[in-house]
Amino acid sequence: MKNNVYLNAIKNYVLILLCIYCISCQGQEYDKDILNLKKVDLGLNAERFYKNSMKRENIKLLSGKQYVEKDTITEYDNTWNGDRNKIFAIQYRVVGYSPEDVVAQFDNIHFSRVESLVDDKGNLMLINAVTPASKDNILKFIAALKKEYQDPELTEDSSGYTHSQVFTWRDKDRIIKLSTNSRLDFSNPHHIVSEADKKEIEEIEKSRLTESTLFICNSTYEKKLLGNLHSGNWMNFK
């Protein structure tokens, strides 16, 4: 009898802890709470998470709030030759923010904005988070990730004149990628660029060259997404 009472007490305690955990996850709000990317739940409800950031009043420059737009990406939008009526993904895209904002963190690295891709049922597929962290801090971050997840796969990526390094780690149900060390390269002999055009490109890309992008992908969607995204920060998921 005493054993049954003891077991029931333990079960009730565990249920209470689970309820508290679920409530805290469901109640987390973008641009209000700091999202812990290291422990992010891949069951995150993006619609609820971004709800208050999608309000029109956040567009105002002095609102002090980030503004997020929800867009449907069809297969045609993504490849220009797919089905216009078939949903490829739904994105929550940050269009109003300040580089000084801190909306998420992973260990000691802070991120100024976080975007998400979900499938047509709302299941989280991919997150991208942007940080203006210095090169020294990124090197420390990479060292910490190596210690946590072992040595990464390292690849080179290029998009136009921009080249970067992509570090990839795998951990249980997720893939972690870091796109960093971006630089401009005008050396391709097939693309002759004038000095005036170089300066213009350098000015346009200036902010992106000092940023790094962290991706956290639900491994279930790796084949669907890897190398198949062609806009915004998503195109660096390779």
Rank of each mutant, 00 (worst) to 15 (best):
2 K>N: 06
3 N>H: 12
3 N>M: 10
3 N>C: 08
3 N>W: 04
5 V>S: 00
8 N>C: 02
8 N>M: 03
10 I>W: 00
10 I>T: 01
10 I>S: 00
11 K>Y: 03
13 Y>L: 08
16 I>S: 14
17 L>D: 08
17 L>V: 12
18 L>W: 07
19 C>T: 14
21 Y>M: 11
21 Y>L: 14
23 I>G: 04
25 C>E: 15
26 Q>V: 15
28 Q>P: 06
32 K>T: 11
35 L>Q: 06
38 K>I: 04
40 V>N: 08
41 D>G: 06
47 E>M: 06
49 F>N: 07
49 F>W: 06
51 K>C: 14
55 K>H: 11
56 R>A: 12
56 R>W: 13
57 E>P: 05
57 E>L: 09
58 N>P: 06
59 I>M: 15
61 L>N: 15
61 L>F: 15
61 L>D: 15
70 K>W: 00
71 D>E: 15
73 I>H: 01
74 T>S: 11
76 Y>M: 09
77 D>R: 08
78 N>M: 09
82 G>S: 03
82 G>M: 04
84 R>M: 15
85 N>T: 12
92 Y>A: 00
93 R>T: 13
95 V>F: 03
97 Y>S: 11
98 S>M: 07
100 E>Q: 13
100 E>I: 10
102 V>N: 13
107 D>L: 13
108 N>D: 15
111 F>H: 04
111 F>C: 06
111 F>P: 01
112 S>D: 09
112 S>Q: 15
115 E>G: 09
118 V>Q: 03
119 D>L: 06
119 D>G: 02
121 K>G: 12
125 M>L: 05
126 L>W: 07
128 N>D: 07
128 N>V: 01
129 A>L: 02
129 A>F: 01
133 A>W: 02
134 S>W: 05
135 K>S: 14
135 K>M: 08
135 K>H: 12
138 I>A: 02
144 A>V: 08
145 L>E: 03
145 L>P: 01
145 L>Y: 00
146 K>S: 13
148 E>R: 15
150 Q>N: 14
152 P>G: 08
155 T>L: 05
156 E>D: 13
157 D>P: 07
159 S>G: 14
160 G>A: 01
161 Y>V: 05
161 Y>Q: 02
162 T>A: 09
166 V>A: 04
167 F>T: 02
168 T>G: 04
171 D>Q: 13
171 D>V: 10
173 D>H: 05
174 R>S: 11
174 R>K: 10
174 R>H: 06
176 I>N: 00
176 I>V: 08
176 I>F: 03
177 K>Y: 02
179 S>D: 10
181 N>H: 08
182 S>L: 11
183 R>Y: 14
183 R>S: 14
184 L>M: 01
186 F>E: 03
187 S>M: 05
187 S>T: 14
189 P>N: 05
192 I>A: 13
193 V>E: 02
200 E>M: 10
205 E>G: 00
208 R>D: 15
209 L>F: 00
209 L>V: 02
211 E>M: 08
213 T>P: 01
213 T>S: 03
214 L>S: 02
214 L>M: 02
216 I>N: 00
216 I>E: 03
217 C>V: 06
219 S>F: 05
219 S>P: 05
220 T>F: 09
223 K>D: 14
225 L>N: 07
228 N>V: 09
231 S>F: 07
233 N>I: 01
235 M>F: 07
235 M>W: 04
236 N>C: 07
237 F>P: 08
